[in-house]
Design a protein around this nucleic acid. Sequence first.
DNA 1: CCGACGTCCTGCTAGC
DNA 2: TGCTAGCAGGACGTCG
Length: 271
Amino acid sequence: MPELPEVETVARDLRPLLVGRALVGVRRSRKALRQSWSKAWEAQLVGRRVETVLRRGKWLLVGLEGGSFLMVHLGMTGRFTVVAPGVATERHTHLVFPLDNAYELRFRDARRFGSVTYFPDQPAWQAFLANRLGPEPWDLAAADWRSALERTRRPVKAVLLDQTVVAGVGNIYADEACYAARIDPRRSGNTLRAAEADRLLQALRDVLARAIESGGSSIRDYVGGNGQQGGYQREFAVYSRPGEACPKCGRKIKCVRIAGRSTHYCSRCQK
DNA sequence: CCGACGTCCTGCTAGC
DNA sequence: TGCTAGCAGGACGTCG
């Protein structure tokens, strides 16, 4: 679910609610997340104040005093929110960190594709992400993006979804970026000309920036760190609208399967 | 080595 | 109206 704009929104929402607050305990459900929670981490966390809330790709990092970090991935259905005192614990809540102001930081995840893990310091989580994540979209050099496309026969859509090439892009924004760049997501990476690659990278950055401004996209489960919905779903040109009219030319938007993911595009506007 | 595909899990809904 | 197959913002392991 949550892609870069959603995770960025959660980070921005959580920052004022968490920084300066101390975690005063840990409660958890019996169910395992994608990575199992270690009881030994709890002693490292309890009593620590939050110093920073960061985002890297689709990962959230909560920095604690003393230099340790909680690293959170929302998977498809994860929610990471601060809730007011007295709010009943909702279904699928797997981790709760009570705060020193009686509010609670809660991790909910129906499908449990998400994870919450502990790292003792910044080099440790950076090492974990090093071989999994490429640069942020704004840090990716145009030349590196071109060469990533040139050296593969995979569809452009699959390259956009590859976290080792560029961090943070998921199914929604891959489709929206291809539409904005007028590029057919089925094309092999190595068929894109340099100008097309450049156009796609620019479109990707534009789409992501606008989605962040709207607080992300809420289509099923996603809410921000304060529980509020995003608004970018109203701006979708193609995602989740197969059969509807293309906003530019009116032709019916197509939906096909690429890299195992549903992919939406306009066959007239995207070449 | 590269790329396609299955798997993890629960909930919702399109279509019968 | 009621049931169920199939699909859903992701990531990773396996197979050919």
